[in-house]
């Protein structure tokens, strides 16, 4: 990782000692002059992981590009809660066109910048997992394949939260959504379905792919910074817990995101040209139950008779991630 290792205030905690660092090594969010790209006053739910992730990522991108940034947004929660006309929370040039075309619109903006010789102005496209892994997938794959100079950021909250929590191809197995109810012999989302978009992005051979969570701010910022140092198609997949859709306490957004990483459920890594180049190791390995239990979307697994077989399958998926990405090894 290309940033200074931080100290923690106390052994065993996750409280980052930003103030122990030299000012220039502190996070963008700790900087009083940060852009606040997504300004306060928007209408996101309390504890919204996507609002947090978007501000972290876009502020970092603004810093990395000397504020020469244009953002393209897919339809979805982020778009709806940030721009209820005539208000807008965006402090940067921003356009929303449709649900499924953010990557292509961003290609167009980047092409315009090239045609006008203004290549110092960079382009970020962003969307939720529905707008990325499902309806926007064709345009996204096209943008990757052409290696257009766009950073695409997917804020993954594992479902269509804006329309009332329906399943997407990023919804994890066993999760309850409005279209995968916790009913029948196999309650919740089906095993063996869904897309692993970071790996699909890597398979395009694009110069940079990274995953991150809102629990690791400095890691997320460093990855955005790295992404903006590179030209061509780049992809970031940020896990953003959704208190509404996941059924966890609003105050637990960061904790849940951290548990996704610490259980191996969500591997945090980066890859260049299709090869994994770094991963964020698990600090203290935890069983998947620790991640699942605080979320109501998995409540059906923890009834009077716990769904041990299902839990074992979910644990096996996490174990596979840990093996595959070597998440227990120190870097």
């Amino acid at each position: 990782m290309a940033f200074e290792q931080v100290k923690f205030y106390q052994t065993g905690t996750f409280t980052v000692g930003n103030r122990l660092l030299e000012p220039e090594l502190r996070s963008v969010q700790a900087d009083t002059t940060r852009t606040n790209s997504l300004n306060s006053g928007h209408r996101a739910c309390q504890g919204c992981g996507e609002a947090l992730g978007a501000r972290y990522a876009i502020d970092a991108a603004m810093e990395a590009t000397d504020n020469q940034l244009i953002a393209v947004n897919a339809t979805g929660c982020l778009e709806v809660f940030s721009t209820p006309y005539p208000e807008t929370s965006w402090q940067i040039p921003w356009i929303h066109s449709l649900f499924g075309n953010a990557a292509a619109v961003a290609t167009g903006v980047a092409a315009a910048m090239r045609a006008k010789g203004r290549e110092t102005t960079r382009v970020v496209a962003q969307g939720g997992d529905g707008g990325t892994t499902d309806i926007g997938f064709g345009c996204l794959s096209g943008m990757f394949e052409r290696n257009d100079d766009v950073l695409y950021i997917c804020y993954d909250n594992g479902g269509y939260m804006n329309t009332g929590v329906q399943r997407s191809s990023a919804t994890p197995p066993a999760a309850r959504t409005a279209t995968t109810p916790a009913m029948g012999p196999e309650p919740g989302n089906v095993f063996g379905q869904g897309k692993n978009l970071p790996e699909i992005a890597m398979a395009h051979g694009i110069p940079y792919v990274a995953t991150a969570t809102v629990a690791d701010l400095r890691d997320l910022e460093a990855k955005v910074r790295r992404a903006m140092q590179i030209r061509g198609a780049r992809y970031m997949h940020i896990l953003v817990p959704c208190p509404l859709g996941w059924g966890h306490a609003s105050a637990d957004t960061i904790r849940i995101a951290r548990l996704a990483k610490e259980t191996g459920t969500f591997p945090v890594f980066e890859a260049e040209c299709g090869e994994v180049t770094s991963r964020l190791p698990i600090r203290k390995r935890l069983p998947v139950e620790d991640y699942l239990k605080p979320q109501k979307r998995f409540a059906h697994l923890f009834g009077p008779e716990p769904a041990t077989a299902t839990l074992a399958r979910l644990q096996a998926l996490a174990d596979r991630n840990i093996r595959k990405y070597a998440l227990l090894e120190e870097t």
């Binding site: 961003a106 167009g108 903006v109 092409a111 064709g138 345009c139």
Partner: peptide, 17 residues
């Protein structure tokens, strides 16, 4: 581009820029 939907979408981005 990879489809007509993308063709018009790229044109939208370019024109807006």
């Amino acid at each position: 581009v990879e489809s007509e939907f993308a063709a018009m979408s790229v044109a939208i981005g370019a024109s807006a820029a």
